[in-house]
């Protein structure tokens, strides 16, 4: 574990990375890799040096766990669903489903059976991943450390890989439906002939529109990541305070996050719906 505050913060913001180190790489303890191979990074430097060929085991593990929890819960209800008086759990699920259904109904006017379940998945999944943030910052890393894992960051949405992973999925859907609904020429026209409807300005339009298109997934991912990451940093900073003083800041900040957590999940969901609605609009 870390000693100085800076090390403590850095330690808490480092993912558990399992990646490939090339042959000849000098490890943290001075040993040299005799041949390239996959291993857990023991320092931040090692994690960075692994480059793209690495996996954040904690991010993937917790996000998949939350996704499985979400789908398991909802599938459990879906199997036992009754049209009569619903029980508590079914009520909770139905409220969520109805909430998403209304969002989609209001924001999305084309017919596409994928959009509403997609929005539900995004909303509940992000919500569950964000909720992990309310677990005190030292609990899980301490347990992980006891199990011999150097780093452990449990909130997947504080990892840009997770948020970008989702926003890229949304981005691909935007491209796919733009092409499907408008056709290749329609989509090209939309990119080239807007906002200035003149042939001479096609290059300008292209630059503008492609920028607009690419900004969509980036803004989606960075907004969620930024909010969650910043919140996490503040939680870690608060954790540096003396024990008796922590609650004075920790409690208000956690209460504030009860608002932030669903809000960020909602914004991601809402923007996904809006972007996909725009992709379905034929001019």
């Amino acid at each position: 574990m870390a000693d100085t505050p800076v090390e403590y913060i850095k330690h808490h913001l480092q993912n558990l990375t399992y990646g490939k180190l090339e042959a000849g790489y000098e490890r943290f303890d001075g040993s040299v890799m005799s041949e390239s191979g996959w291993t857990f990074a023991r320092t931040a430097q090692e994690a960075a040096d692994m480059g793209f060929m690495a996996i954040h085991v904690d991010t993937l593990g917790w996000s998949i766990a939350m996704g499985v929890l979400f789908l398991g819960l909802f599938r459990f209800v879906a199997k036992r669903v009754t049209t009569g008086v619903p029980g508590g759990l079914q009520n909770l699920v139905e409220v969520t489903v109805e909430f998403i259904e209304n969002l989609v109904k209001d924001g999305f006017h084309a017919r596409n059976p994928l959009i509403a379940p997609l929005a539900l998945t995004i909303f509940v999944w992000i919500l569950l991943m964000n909720v992990l943030k309310l677990i005190p910052v030292d609990y899980i890393p301490t347990i992980a450390h006891a199990m011999g894992l150097e780093y452990f960051k449990i909130v997947p949405t504080t990892d840009p890989n997770a948020t970008f992973g989702m926003s890229i999925g949304v981005f691909l859907l935007i491209i796919f439906y733009s092409l499907k609904v408008k056709g290749v020429t329609g989509f090209a026209k939309e990119l080239g002939m807007q906002p200035f409807n003149h042939w001479a300005l096609i290059p300008v339009n292209l630059v503008l529109e492609i920028l607009v298109l690419i900004v969509k997934p980036i803004s989606l991912a960075l907004r969620l990541f930024g909010n969650m990451y910043a919140g996490e940093v503040v939680f870690i900073l608060i954790a540096l305070l003396p024990l008796w003083a922590q609650w004075t800041l920790n409690v208000p900040w956690a209460i504030f996050h009860i608002l932030v957590i669903p809000l960020q999940a909602f914004i991601f969901t809402m923007l996904t719906i809006v972007y996909l609605a725009a992709a379905h609009e034929d001019h």
């Binding site: 060929m53 991010t59 996000s63 970008f164 992973g165 999925g169």
Partner: peptide, 17 residues
């Protein structure tokens, strides 16, 4: 660091959806 997690997350996302 941006790494394979990105792709893993995308795949998980697709499967969940």
């Amino acid at each position: 660091n941006i790494n394979l997690t990105l792709i893993g997350q995308s795949i998980a996302f697709a499967i969940f959806v």
